[in-house]
């Protein structure tokens, strides 16, 4: 077994994979994630547009952007994070690139993304 195969084996055995729906940049998703306050654990949601999916293997992350009270808020989630409870895909967007950073410069009606029609 070479080094790359060994690493793959380790990552598959040691790390628990989380079931995730497939989504890409431009989609609107809701991330339900666990929050610890003292000893209590509760679930919070973060709904927004996926800006990008980055990294590979275990280090895959995705960035979600939402507008909260006229201020853009971005959150980066690791795909393997044990704090992620559930991910819902609300809307499939049609975008031409894998990383839609241009959305950061847009506001209001301009910041809309065309919805995919199935």
């Amino acid at each position: 077994m070479n080094k790359a195969e060994t690493m793959k084996f380790v990552e598959e055995t040691v790390i628990q994979k989380i079931e995730m729906p497939s989504f890409k940049a431009g989609d609107t998703i809701t991330v339900h994630y666990k929050i610890k306050e003292g000893n209590k654990e509760r679930i919070q949601t973060f709904q927004g547009v996926v800006l990008q999916r980055a990294g590979k293997g275990l280090n895959t992350t995705f960035t979600v952007r939402k507008i909260s009270g006229n201020i853009g808020v971005e959150r980066i989630f690791p795909c393997t994070s044990p704090f992620i409870n559930k991910i819902d895909v609300n809307k499939r967007g049609v975008v031409r690139r894998a990383r839609i950073y241009y959305l950061r410069g847009l506001q209001g009606k301009k910041a809309r993304i065309k919805e995919e029609r199935i």
Partner: peptide
């Protein structure tokens, strides 16, 4: 040495 990776502990 094979390489580095990261794992999550009991506290996440």
């Amino acid at each position: 040495k094979i390489g580095m990776t990261s794992i999550y502990d009991a506290n996440g």
